[in-house]
Design a protein around this nucleic acid. Sequence first.
RNA 1: GGGCGAUUAGCUCAGUUGGCUAGAGCACCUGAUUUACACUCAGGGUGUCGGGGGUUCAAGUCCCUCAUCGCCCACCA
Length: 948
Amino acid sequence: MGLPKAYVAGDYEADIYALWEKSGVFIADPSSSKPHFSIAMPPPNETSTLHLGGALFITLQDILIRHARQVGYDALWLPGTDHAAIATNSVVERQLAEQGTNKHELGREAFVAKVKEFADRNRGTMLKQMRAMGASADWSRLRYTLDEALNRCVNEVFIKMYQDGLIYRGHRIVNWDPNLETTVSDDEVIYKEEESPLYTLQYGPFKISTARPETKFGDKYVVMHPGDKRYAQYKTGDTFECEWINGPVTATIIKDEAVDPAFGTGVMTITPWHDRTDFEIAERHGLEKEQIIDFDGKLLAIAGEFEAIKIDEARPKIVEKLRQKNLLVSIDKTYTHNIALNSRGKGVIEPQIKLQWFIDVNRPAVDWKGQKRSLKEVMRAVIEDGDIKIVPKRFEKIYYHWIDNLRDWCISRQIWWGHQIPVWYRQESVHSPQSAVHSKDSVYVGVRPPQEEGWQQDPDTLDTWFSSALWTWSTLVDPELTKDFSLSLDDLLAKSIDYQTYHPTDVLETAYEILFFWVARMILATTYVTGRVPFKTVYLHGLVRTETGKKMSKSDPDSIVDPVGVINEYGTDALRLALIAGTSPGTDQRVRKSKIVANRNFVNKLWNIARYIDDLRVRPLEGEENNIGRRSLRVVPLGHNRGSVMPKSVADHWILNKLSIAARAVSEDLDNFRFSEAYDALYHFVWDDFADWYVEVSKTTPNREVLAFVLKSTLKIAHPFAPFVTETIWQSFDPFDKTQPSINTKAALNSSNGQDRPEQGRMGDSAQDKNLFQGLALEKESLLASQLWPKFQKVDLAKVSQFKELQEIITQSRQIAANVGVTKPALFYKAAPLIDENKELVKSLGRLSQVKEAKAAKGLRLTGTKYAAWLDIDRETAQAYLGRLKTSQKAREAAIKLLQKRLSNKSYTQKAPKELVKQTKTQLVEEQQLLEAIKHEIAAFQTAVKNI
RNA sequence: GGGCGAUUAGCUCAGUUGGCUAGAGCACCUGAUUUACACUCAGGGUGUCGGGGGUUCAAGUCCCUCAUCGCCCACCA
């Protein structure tokens, strides 16, 4: 017995991973003659640690990739990390604040160096943890969103879009975060409901309401709905004088449909600089706009005595002043409204007008299928035309809705960590024809800085999602080529072998949360640049929630289940399986400890099947001749992909049939992204069919070759789901080779009683000096990870049915015995060659004292089989069973009635598929036979009872 | 205001293009068992598939409607 009793994942995982990585089995080969398959891994924040969501996406993608390799693809899973501009930037800014300084004092260069240092220091944890999850990614192609090569791509795309008029610079209202001192895109703004007082103020003849009196200093336009009869006497352009916060103002009447007559008095004043709706009204009517609040969140000179006061402090003071001036009409304290927050850092967003860079989503400047279309139109078309399929489909609707509401994308950020905008400015003196001299900003846009003196680069960086949007292809561009500035973007793509081989990628798997942030933007950028879609299928997974259904959040550390902790306690395979069991695409799931335990048990079940077979290789069974030494079990070299085996017994035929069905089902389910169903098929094959039936059968009539073959095949189909335990078993022994001892002696010693285990969770650490498997050759071919998927086995279906008949006899024997409280009864049979041939098997599995041919009926007749078989139980003892028989009779009768009704329905026999009708007929016959048997048995019972 | 999802066993959830008597894990009950595994085995489920209506030979599945919970988007003076 070489293997320890229970599989202790921590003893093997690091070594197994090292084995894979060293062998190069994860490295894709564009020159391979195999068909290619690729997935671009969503790059996680390089300085963060793995959370359950990350564990989930790695599991799903790893399953797809491993399965693809096994069914014969050259598969590339390209990993990478993200520079997470705002997140990383703000961590370092916070550190600086703690040290009493800030980035402005430090200066740009020093600040960026500091962020880089922070990133360098914290990089690696994530990569290590992804390996711990078993990710079979091609680390030789690891990319980072701030790589030089990716920067080249980012700049090229920016320039291309600029030249096509898709990128422009303009004064627009943007979401300004005064805390992080940057703009953020519309998608990064979240809204939180908050109760705050609503002040109603007297503004000339009107009453207006506001929750933000501090923005009202400059208000000089009064707006109402054109159809509002109450204000019919006023016309657009009418003016009046009135007393306001800091003295008299001249107000102008504006009529605009944006005003809701039902809200308050139906009249409002506008603050175009700090409100999007107001801005739009002002744009429509050509009104003046004035800044009230500066970019630090303090009031400007227009606020008079309130200048330079933070808005929160200023508000009560302003309200007090309004009260004193008798301009405050009323306060509604129960008013709730949504305040805008930055999703990162939760700072309150202040709308501001700012000169920023935007992507125009409505300009028809994209060549798509022979037409000039806008980015919006292309984004819609690729889904509508089926170029990209979204799984689950319901997200297509959500996606369309997002596109329809999409505004121009603000891509410039005022943070320093990221891709700096490739634009330079220079103040130039210009002599106009009238010979007046004035200065003008010249603009230079290019991959490299202009050669002449005096140019200043735009200080802003690009939204992180701008570089992420290029991810599927920028990672496939050959980094060497990007150093050659004579090449155009098209050249770079044309000459990059990886790009030519692996793009478009096959699947993009990610969380539904980032459908807009990332998926949509990859579609936007990639269709525009390459003229092709970035991926063919989008699979979206749901959130992993806590046991109580809450979202795990950093602000509530107790809510977080740490995947690394789970790996250390239960093993990676258990975690992976728990994350896919009973889930469905796009739906949130809860993770509970019991679920992880259940899946750890499955992993252990695989382990023990292997242990049993390992043991059986070299040990004769009771009653078996001790001639194993002479028997020439064919020695098959490790990793040899033997495609088939010879079945002998009915059980052999049955298990090979089950195996084939399971292998096919798992594969088909995975092809269709039905992860949970695939695992379900695997689980029940392994546990119910292989362990509980075939292994048990093998204890009386072993066929070592079939056992070994089924084990090897099982390891293959289980491998994508539970890569570590399956590879560990694969490497531990060759089930065909009785001469080779199990090699896990060290692990066996370590974990024989669960004590003195080596330190766990050391994945990737150099502390592990000796690999358990170091004696093995490291050829790729010897790894389970590079084995091909099992082929369908042809078997004799008649023999399969015979085994099912035996199962029925065995199951019924157990049921009756348990039901009447008898242990180990005898079974008699008459004229039943099948039972006769499998006496020992039926006896052992049926928990019977003996199985014997009888001359006449004796005891209790089994009803579920066509064979004449009786359990040796007297009818008095079996009284309890009578009730069961009667229940069964009723069920049969009900079923028969239903089937007859169905068959007598002409529209059913005419309209339903022929096969189904045929099936129904067969079923009716079977039910009728069964009913007859039951009736006979009940009659026999009644006779017996009478005779007592 | 617009949209999406969920509602199935005590709990957590599967259930594909409608098609056998609706399933799994956990929990629970009864029993077994010193060598593959107590991380085990055998046996045990009386569910109005949220309510109502409709389409169909056939509905957990499709359509309408109502209810409850959750999410997304937009508006919020």
